[in-house]
């Protein structure tokens, strides 16, 4: 069951990313681009979390890559929110 939720989370993030990415084609909207980056990063984070918790349990270091990816993604989202909207 825990494995299944990682799949759900990954699919949700990937779907959101793809929807946002498709809309960036016309007209060019930088906020959508940053949103897509955020959701792609979230999907990658879920994949890395799956590797971390399920494939490599009980290793402290394997939590670091997903955290770094997530921090980079949310920072990209905030960057886009601040510069494109305010």
């Amino acid at each position: 069951m825990p494995e299944a939720t990682y799949i759900i989370c990954t699919i949700t993030s990937l779907a959101s990313a793809i929807m946002l990415w498709r809309s960036t084609q016309a007209p060019r909207n930088r906020l959508l681009i940053w949103g897509a980056v955020f959701f792609f990063g979230m999907a990658l984070n879920n994949v890395l979390l799956f590797v971390d918790k399920v494939l490599l349990p009980n290793q402290a270091w394997s939590s670091v890559p997903p955290n770094i990816v997530m921090l980079a993604s949310v920072s990209a989202l905030i960057y886009g929110l601040i510069w494109e909207v305010t």
């Binding site: 402290a60 270091w61 939590s63 670091v64 955290n67 770094i68 997530m70 921090l71 949310v74 920072s75 989202l77 905030i78 929110l81």
Partner: peptide, 20 residues
């Protein structure tokens, strides 16, 4: 100290989520 590092990253992520 990896546990501290993970907690630090987690806190930064949580702050980022809150702002977004």
């Amino acid at each position: 100290d990896l546990s501290n590092l993970n907690h630090f990253l987690g806190g930064a992520i949580a702050a980022g989520y809150s702002v977004a």
